[in-house]
Lab assay of single mutants.
Amino acid sequence: ETGKELVLALYDYQEKSPREVTMKKGDILTLLNSTNKDWWKVEVNDRQGFVPAAYVKKL
């Protein structure tokens, strides 16, 4: 879809709370919100949640 910003997972991340999502290094995720410098909201496999901003980079 146009207008979607994507990020690349630089590291594996295992969710530690229900508000977070698990990702694997190399995953491409849809970026939903990056206003917080530490935690970015992403969508992966129809799930939305937060990942550490340092673990992903914008494509």
Rank of each mutant, 00 (worst) to 15 (best):
Val56Glu: 01
Trp40Asn: 01
Arg47Cys: 06
Ala53Val: 05
Thr2Val: 13
Val7Cys: 13
Met23Phe: 10
Val7Ser: 03
Lys41Leu: 15
Asp38Ile: 15
Gly26Arg: 03
Glu43Pro: 00
Val56Ile: 08
Val44Phe: 15
Val42Gln: 00
Lys4Val: 13
Asp27Glu: 12
Glu1Asn: 14
Gln14Met: 13
Gly3Asn: 12
Arg47Thr: 07
Asp38Gln: 12
Trp40Cys: 04
Lys4Arg: 14
Glu15Cys: 13
Ala53Lys: 06
Thr30Gly: 08
Phe50Cys: 12
Glu5Asp: 11
Leu59His: 05
Lys16Thr: 13
Asp46Phe: 10
Thr22Met: 04
Val56His: 00
Val42Met: 02
Tyr11His: 10
Gly49Gln: 02
Ala53Met: 05
Val56Arg: 00
Arg47Ala: 06
Gly26Leu: 02
Trp40Asp: 00
Asp46Ile: 06
Glu1Met: 09
Lys37Ile: 10
Thr30Tyr: 11
Arg19His: 11
Leu31Val: 06
Asn45Glu: 13
Lys25Phe: 05
Leu8His: 04
Thr22Leu: 03
Asp12Met: 03
Lys58Ser: 08
Leu10Gln: 04
Pro52Ser: 02
Trp39Val: 03
Ser17Glu: 08
Leu6Gln: 10
Val7Ala: 11
Pro52Glu: 02
Glu15Ile: 06
Val21Asn: 04
Gln48Met: 11
Tyr11Thr: 08
Ile28Leu: 09
Gln48Thr: 11
Lys24Thr: 09
Asp38Ala: 11
Lys41Glu: 13
Pro18Tyr: 08
Glu1Gln: 14
Asp38Ser: 11
Leu6Ala: 06
Leu10Ser: 03
Ile28Arg: 05
Val51Pro: 00
Ser17Leu: 08
Asp46Thr: 10
Glu5Ile: 15
Glu1Arg: 09
Glu5Leu: 12
Glu43Leu: 09
Phe50Asn: 04
Val42Arg: 00
Gln48Asp: 06
Lys37Ala: 13
Thr2Trp: 12
Val21Gly: 02
Glu5Pro: 10
Val56Ser: 01
Leu6Ile: 08
Tyr13Asn: 00
Gly26Ile: 01
Gly26Phe: 05
Val42Pro: 00
Tyr11Ala: 10
Met23Gly: 00
Ser17Pro: 05
Met23Ala: 02
Leu32Asp: 01
Tyr55Thr: 06
Ala54Val: 09
Lys37Met: 10
Met23Cys: 06
Asp46Met: 11
Trp39Arg: 03
Val21Arg: 02
Glu20Asn: 05
Glu43Cys: 12
Lys41His: 11
Leu6Pro: 04
Gln14Trp: 12
Pro18Glu: 11
Ala54Gly: 10
Thr30Trp: 14
Glu15Tyr: 05
Tyr55Arg: 05
Leu59Trp: 09
Val56Cys: 15
Thr22Gln: 04
Phe50Tyr: 15
Lys25Ser: 07
Tyr13Arg: 02
Ser17Gly: 13
Asp12Glu: 05
Leu59Asn: 03
Glu1Ala: 13
Val21His: 04
Leu10His: 03
Arg19Ile: 12
Leu31Met: 03
Leu10Tyr: 03
Lys16Tyr: 05
Leu29Asn: 01
Tyr55Pro: 01
Lys58Asp: 04
Phe50Gln: 03
Leu6Phe: 15
Trp39Tyr: 06
Glu20Cys: 07
Arg47Asn: 06
Phe50Met: 08
Lys57Gln: 14
Leu8Arg: 09
Pro52Leu: 04
Trp40Ser: 02
Tyr55Gly: 06
Ser34Trp: 09
Met23His: 01
Asp38Asn: 12
Ala9Trp: 02
Lys4Pro: 13
Asp27Arg: 03
Phe50Asp: 04
Thr30Glu: 10
Asp38Pro: 03
Ser17Tyr: 06
Gln48Asn: 08
Asp27Phe: 05
Glu1Ile: 13
Gln14Tyr: 15
Asn36Tyr: 08
Tyr11Glu: 09
Lys58Leu: 14
Phe50Lys: 02
Ser34Ala: 12
Arg19Trp: 15
Tyr13Leu: 02
Asp27Cys: 07
Tyr11Arg: 15
Glu43Gln: 13
Asn33Ser: 13
Trp39Asn: 02
Gln48Glu: 10
Tyr55Lys: 07
Glu43Trp: 08
Gly3Asp: 12
Leu32Cys: 07
Trp40Glu: 01
Ser34Cys: 12
Ala9His: 01
Trp39Gln: 03
Arg19Lys: 11
Gly49Pro: 00
Leu6Val: 08
Lys57Tyr: 10
Glu5Asn: 11
Ala53Trp: 02
Tyr13Pro: 00
Lys41Phe: 15
Tyr11Ile: 09
Asn36Ser: 10
Pro52Lys: 03
Ile28Asn: 02
Ser34Pro: 06
Asn36Asp: 15
Lys41Val: 14
Asn33Gly: 06
Lys57Arg: 14
Val7Lys: 01
Asp38Trp: 15
Val7Gly: 13
Tyr55Glu: 02
Ala53Ile: 03
Ile28Tyr: 06
Asp12Gln: 03
Val42His: 00
Lys58Thr: 08
Asn36Trp: 07
Asp12Asn: 08
Lys16Ser: 10
Ala54Pro: 08
Pro52Ala: 02
Tyr13Trp: 11
Tyr13Val: 01
Asn36Phe: 08
Leu8Cys: 09
Ile28Ala: 02
Lys24Glu: 06
Asp46Pro: 06
Leu31Ser: 01
Asn45His: 14
Lys4Leu: 13
